[in-house]
């Protein structure tokens, strides 16, 4: 497909990451199930990580910028922690309300 669109590998990666973020945002906005929302957030995070990697390619010089890779590795680790917390919250919500439907859980509205 890269050949068809005549993109460089960096551009292709950026495009993919934008697509991933968009898919994730779509999931977060349209889904009502909390688990799906968590999955959507994870997709956004993946897109952002990929974007970092993609941007590192555009650096001028003999080497690819390693800072972006280092940051990405940290970010992946943090994602792991984040998904842990998010799932724990989901579990607590399920135990309390016996449902994961966000429209049912409207305690913020008095």
């Amino acid at each position: 497909m890269i050949d068809i669109l005549n993109l460089s590998i960096g551009e292709a990666l950026v495009l993919t990451s934008v697509l991933l973020v968009a898919i994730g945002l779509f999931a977060v906005v349209t889904r009502r199930n909390l688990l799906r929302i968590v999955i959507g957030i994870e997709i956004i995070a993946t897109g952002v990580n990929l974007n970092f990697i993609a941007m590192s390619i555009f650096k001028h010089g003999p080497y690819i910028d390693p800072t972006a890779h280092a940051l990405t590795i940290i970010s992946i680790v943090l994602d792991g922690a984040l998904v842990g917390v998010a799932l724990a919250l989901t579990l607590v919500v399920y135990r309390k309300f016996r449902t994961l439907d966000t429209d049912e859980i409207r305690r913020l509205r008095w």
Binding site: L25, V29, R32, T102, D103, R106, L108, R109, W110
Partner: peptide
């Protein structure tokens, strides 16, 4: 918080859409 929560709809998806 009892005052402020009156302006909320409580629909998570709408909030998310507004944020975006």
């Amino acid at each position: 918080s009892n005052v402020v929560r009156r302006i909320q709809t409580g629909v998570l998806r709408m909030n998310m859409a507004y944020i975006i």
